[in-house]
Design a protein around this nucleic acid. Structure first.
Lengths: 167, 167
DNA sequence: TTGATTATATCAATATATTGATATAATTAG
DNA sequence: CTAATTATATCAATATATTGATATAATCAA
């Protein structure tokens, strides 16, 4: 038997549905990402209620609380590249954190143009106090996933981040 | 040989590092989610530049363009539960979409209190035109993942959504 | 029918979040 | 030394995004 003729310029039916299926998977993937992000910010901020903090401030404090950064601080440019948000937006978040005395802007001894953002002692205390609710949040949010699945999800999100960055 | 004695009230060292490792995985997972979400909105909106639309409007149009919804429309309440954002926020997004004549609010024949949000013909045309850039965006963003990995990621995000919803 | 509930809308306050334009100061390259 | 670059900041406009309080109209339960 010879294969069925395909009219020129027309996409075979099985290939059309293949393309459609690929789109459906991608669409579902990004919509789930969208939903998870909405829930992360909505419920995450709720968990930070006792501190009057938001998930954005949580992210900044978390970045600055890392062992090596805790002492040296981090430049605005580094924070922007790490958190992936705009300079103007980060400035506003830092202003609020500075107004609460949770972070301070100090001069970079190695580059006069640069200013280093550093956690204050108050900011460090706040971060340590937040760790409790954050651990509870993590535990509950990740309850449906095994430890292996969590590691796997981190790897996949890592790759997705690379793709989204190069888009 | 007897096992080493563990001082009461003190957590054994190997268990401490286990807990710390668990937290690290969770922390990395949610930070990757945070970064991916930032990139999705930042670059996604850039891809919608020709239409002057945002990722939020993209999400709403996508929800309303689905086969069964296209004709009947969707109540505000259903949209809120689907998109997982606040009523006040959705109202503002719908106001902008209505001002552009991309959606319309019609009375629900089955419930006088409810109003159905429906895509207009203009809105449907806009959505169809957006499909091109969206497919390009999806293709590039998912380039680092195999088809199997994409399906797997959808499943894992599905579970994560469940956890985040119950948190 | 009265009363509670439900669906939506609106107003206000606050915090993100983007792009674009402009400004200042410090470093670096020529 | 001069000029270009770099790092940050600021102002403006617009679009999300939240909670809380208030209002209106329709449905539903008693």
């Amino acid at each position: 038997m010879s294969p069925p003729a395909i009219p020129p310029g027309e996409i075979p039916h099985h290939q059309q549905s293949y393309e459609a299926e690929r789109f459906e998977v991608a669409n579902r993937l990004f919509f789930r990402l969208y939903q998870c992000s909405n829930l992360l910010h909505k419920n995450g901020t709720r968990y930070m209620g006792d501190f009057g903090a938001t998930t954005q401030q949580w992210a900044v404090l978390g970045a600055l609380a890392r062992p090596l950064v805790r002492i040296k601080g981090m430049s605005v440019k580094e924070l922007i590249e790490f958190l992936l948000l705009s300079r103007q937006n980060l400035t506003a978040v830092l202003d609020r954190l500075e107004a609460r005395s949770w972070v301070e802007r100090i001069k970079d001894p190695e580059d006069g143009r640069s200013r280093l953002i550093r956690l204050t002692d108050d900011g460090n205390d706040a971060w340590l106090a937040m760790r409790g609710p954050i651990e509870t949040f993590y535990g509950r949010a990740l309850a449906p996933l095994t430890e292996n699945e969590q590691v796997q999800l981190v790897h996949l999100l890592d790759r997705l981040k690379g793709g989204l960055n190069a888009v």
